[in-house]
Simulated assay, not measured.
Amino acid sequence: MLHKTIILSLGILALTGCDAQKKTRTETEPKVAEMNSGTNTSIPSDQKDMIYLSQGENKFLKDYEMNVTFKGISEDSRCPEGVNCIWAGVAVAQIEVMGLATRPMTLNLASMDHAAKNYHQSADFNGYTITLKEVTPYPKAADGTKALAGKYKIGISIQKAETPSGSTTK
């Protein structure tokens, strides 16, 4: 009897924890209306398909049949605001993706393309091209990137991958 009572109470605690997690997640997700500060209520075409993730956040994207997790920023050499730099720098986000019938795969997406340094803004996964569009916040001269640990947010877009001309698909 005691065993059943303990299992029942753990189940109730787990369910209330899930409910609390849903509430905090919906409160922290950016609203489209808040993003548009102007009077025009239409969403820009480049932001229609944007998916925003906070560091450590996990989302299942039903339309694409994949799970996306923003693991963190492995490199942030972007030039801080208010500083003159020779190179603009780059931020590299680690994004773990997993399809319904695939194993997890970690993609390192950069804020810009630079093939010589092996920085790629886009990567293909499971028939889709995933592109890093936005990394916030931007580093400040006084604080540097160490102050941003755990506070990063990214915006990605997912598009159907283009098949090369002349190729056949089954």
Rank of each mutant, 00 (worst) to 15 (best):
A20V: 06
A142F: 15
E162H: 10
K170E: 10
H120R: 10
C85E: 14
A110C: 11
S45M: 13
L8A: 03
K133N: 08
E34T: 10
V83Y: 11
L13K: 00
K117V: 00
P104I: 06
I7D: 01
N36Q: 10
T129N: 14
G166F: 12
L107H: 12
G150P: 07
K31N: 03
T145R: 12
K117T: 02
V97C: 05
S111T: 13
K23S: 05
L107F: 14
A123K: 05
V68S: 00
G11S: 07
R103T: 08
C18I: 15
P30L: 11
E57W: 08
A161M: 05
V92K: 13
T69Q: 12
K117R: 13
A149N: 03
A142N: 13
E75Y: 08
E75A: 11
G38H: 08
Y128T: 02
K71Y: 03
V90L: 09
D113I: 00
D49C: 01
S42M: 10
Y138N: 13
K31C: 01
K4G: 01
S157K: 04
Q94M: 14
K71T: 09
E57M: 07
M50P: 00
A142L: 14
E75C: 03
S9G: 00
N40R: 10
T129W: 09
T131V: 05
I6T: 00
T69S: 06
R103I: 01
L148D: 09
L10H: 01
G56E: 06
T102D: 13
L109G: 07
S42N: 13
N36T: 11
Q159I: 06
R103H: 06
K140A: 15
Q159D: 08
G166M: 09
L13D: 00
D124S: 14
T168E: 13
E96V: 11
V90K: 12
D113V: 02
T168G: 13
T24V: 07
L61C: 05
E75R: 14
K151N: 15
I130N: 04
G144D: 13
K59H: 03
G166Q: 03
P137Y: 01
Y119D: 11
Q159H: 05
I51G: 05
G127W: 03
G82V: 11
K22D: 06
G89E: 08
K4L: 04
Y152P: 12
I156L: 05
K23C: 02
S9V: 01
S42W: 11
P80G: 08
A110E: 11
L100H: 02
L148H: 12
L61H: 04
P104F: 01
